[in-house]
């Protein structure tokens, strides 16, 4: 139970950051916090009481936890990293064009410079 709440709270914190912050870098940090929360949630779903790591060892015969979520999380982590790198380079591009990474200022500049097609 505590694991679920902890993992979901991490997702919640990440969502809170995304919803309230204007700074794009902070928003990306929020997304990455939420990602780690999701990964923890997946792992906790696969937990078995008194389970050990799902790797066979000679002379060891204990119940193992579910290996599937661990494999899924491995994939999810890599995807999270890839997205973060891509998003970060777009933020760098935004900074180069607008000179700021505050989303509300960027939106204001876009509206201001628009030639009437918004």
């Amino acid at each position: 139970m505590m694991f679920y709440i902890a993992a979901l709270s991490l997702i919640g914190i990440g969502l809170y950051v995304v919803l309230t912050k204007k700074n794009l870098v902070k928003v990306l940090i929020g997304i990455s916090i939420a990602d780690s929360g999701v990964n923890l949630l997946l792992i906790s779903v696969g937990y078995l009481k008194n389970g050990t790591a799902p790797i066979l060892e000679k002379g060891l015969n204990k119940p193992m936890v579910d290996p599937v979520p661990q494999a899924l999380v491995l994939t999810a982590i890599v995807i999270g990293v890839a997205t973060l790198a891509l998003a970060m380079s777009v933020v760098i591009d935004v900074k180069r064009h607008f000179g700021t990474v505050e989303l509300d200022k960027v939106i204001k500049m876009m509206r201001g410079g628009d030639n009437g097609d918004a």
């Binding site: 139970m1 709440i5 979901l8 709270s9 997702i11 919640g12 969502l15 809170y16 919803l19 309230t20």
Partner: peptide, 13 residues
């Protein structure tokens, strides 16, 4: 935002 987050965590948990 707080209400949304707390609801989300509570319901899913």
């Amino acid at each position: 935002a707080w209400i949304f987050v707390i609801l989300f965590v509570g319901v899913v948990a």
